[in-house]
Amino acid sequence: MSLEEIEQIKQLKHRYCRFLDTANAAGLETVLTEDIEIDYLGGTYHFKAQGRDEVIAILKAAFHEDFVGSHTVNQPEITILSADSAEGRWTLTDYAVDLRTGYETSGACLYRDRYAKVDGEWRIARSSYRRLYERVTKLDVLPNFTARYLAERATNPEI
């Protein structure tokens, strides 16, 4: 087991979360294998997709300019299986508000991932999670966010 390989996988997962929260489709392409599979099961949804293009299309639709969210992963348990294969478990804490629908979601998940080394770089090959808990609230009054990255990025793609 190489600590350098484990650190590379940790950074890969953190980049995935950052690209997700910033709706960076080009960045997501760099961290996913072409044949990526996702299976995300929440209390109010089930996202299941295969193939990088399909996965990115689903994520782009969910993370739009009227979306506010943050995904934080921690407690990594990474196992290197071979020179080009690894698996990981993570705990996710997330918060999201969809200003189009007025729903606020918060909760925690247990991620299970598979990683593949492609052209010398670790990529996410399979990602799934199940909710530990999920709280969804229909907001009577939308929050007054004084900063919203995705809304700002919609008018200024350079940020």
Results as ranks from 00 to 15, higher is better:
2 S>P: 10
3 L>E: 15
4 E>Y: 13
4 E>A: 15
5 E>G: 04
5 E>C: 05
6 I>Q: 10
11 Q>Y: 05
15 R>P: 03
16 Y>Q: 05
16 Y>G: 02
17 C>P: 02
18 R>T: 06
19 F>M: 01
19 F>I: 04
21 D>F: 00
23 A>K: 06
28 L>M: 11
30 T>H: 04
37 E>H: 15
40 Y>C: 14
43 G>T: 15
44 T>F: 07
44 T>A: 06
45 Y>L: 10
47 F>W: 11
48 K>D: 01
50 Q>K: 10
53 D>I: 09
58 I>E: 12
58 I>H: 07
62 A>E: 08
62 A>W: 08
67 F>I: 07
67 F>K: 10
68 V>L: 12
73 V>L: 04
75 Q>G: 07
79 T>S: 11
84 D>M: 01
84 D>H: 03
90 W>T: 00
92 L>C: 15
92 L>Q: 11
94 D>N: 09
97 V>P: 01
98 D>V: 01
100 R>T: 15
102 G>W: 00
103 Y>V: 13
103 Y>Q: 10
104 E>G: 11
105 T>A: 12
106 S>F: 06
106 S>P: 03
107 G>I: 05
107 G>K: 14
108 A>R: 13
109 C>A: 09
111 Y>C: 00
114 R>P: 04
115 Y>R: 09
117 K>S: 01
118 V>S: 09
119 D>R: 13
119 D>K: 12
123 R>H: 08
124 I>V: 08
125 A>L: 07
125 A>V: 04
125 A>H: 07
126 R>E: 06
129 Y>F: 06
130 R>H: 06
130 R>I: 08
131 R>Y: 02
132 L>R: 07
138 K>T: 14
138 K>P: 08
138 K>A: 15
139 L>K: 00
145 F>P: 00
146 T>S: 10
146 T>C: 03
149 Y>C: 03
149 Y>E: 11
150 L>H: 01
153 R>Y: 13
154 A>I: 00
154 A>Y: 02
155 T>H: 14
